[in-house]
């Protein structure tokens, strides 16, 4: 017998003659205390994000590229990791072209192994989409894709995320159910609730531990 069979054998023996506890899942307990009037959801999400040093910008589907450009300019950043394969990537490129701006756009278009150094040490900012937001905890739902891989939201010191106001829901349970997560989880699914941080030295909060030092959420109010 191998370890697996021995372990399972012992566990089964310990449960001999018992019946499993029934699943009496109480969804009201996970939704009722975490429900908000529609007009308060975005406000709550923003204030929770701000409480953990996240920056939130209320903008629109047409104007966000200008806001992103300003955010980059104010930080002296002249390049952005963004996917040309996404609608928002194309919109931002279009905006730059139209306005004759020189921000260099970088695509995550090859396996990480081929450009690790550049990604880690010469990519100051990234922009990704999100699958929605959670008002209860101030979280963004991010499912990396081939166009926007996992490290895009992690390695660059500045991460900018686009969030449609209409996709901000009340709580985690709700979005799990409506988006049917259990049936279709990707290889990596993330909730992101602020920039990277740590309190490991004398309970003193410091931001930018290993992930982004800054998180800016562009909330598209009309989308």
């Amino acid at each position: 017998m191998n370890a697996r069979d021995r372990i399972l054998g012992k566990l089964k023996q310990s449960l001999a003659g018992t019946t499993p506890i029934a699943d009496d899942y109480d969804d009201a307990l996970l939704t009722a205390p975490w429900s908000y009037p529609a007009e308060h959801r975005v406000t709550r999400l923003c204030s929770l994000l701000q409480a953990v040093h996240g920056e939130t910008v209320l903008t629109t589907a047409a104007e966000w590229p200008a806001r992103v450009s300003e955010a980059l300019a104010s930080r002296g950043i002249d390049e952005l990791l963004i996917s040309p394969a996404t609608a928002h990537g194309q919109q931002f490129a279009g905006y730059l072209a139209l306005n004759g701006l020189v921000t260099r756009l970088k695509a995550y278009d090859r396996p990480v192994e081929q450009w690790k150094d550049e990604l880690f040490f010469s990519t100051p900012a990234s922009l990704t989409g999100t699958l929605g937001g959670i008002a209860a905890t101030g979280s963004l739902v991010v499912w990396p894709t081939p166009a926007e891989p996992r490290l895009m939201s992690l390695v660059p010191p500045l991460h900018i995320a686009l969030l449609k106001a209409s996709e901000v829901v009340d709580n985690l349970y709700q979005i799990m159910q409506t988006q049917r997560w259990a049936e279709r989880l990707p290889t990596n699914a993330l909730l992101i609730s602020g920039p990277s941080k740590t309190a490991d030295i004398q309970q003193t909060l410091a931001y930018g531990a290993h992930g982004p030092k800054e998180l800016i959420v562009m909330v598209l109010q009309d989308a």
Partner: peptide
């Protein structure tokens, strides 16, 4: 109501 009270080995709530 959910545990099988009769079995001492039943997982406890």
């Amino acid at each position: 109501p959910h545990s099988s009270v009769a079995t001492p080995q039943a997982t406890r709530l």
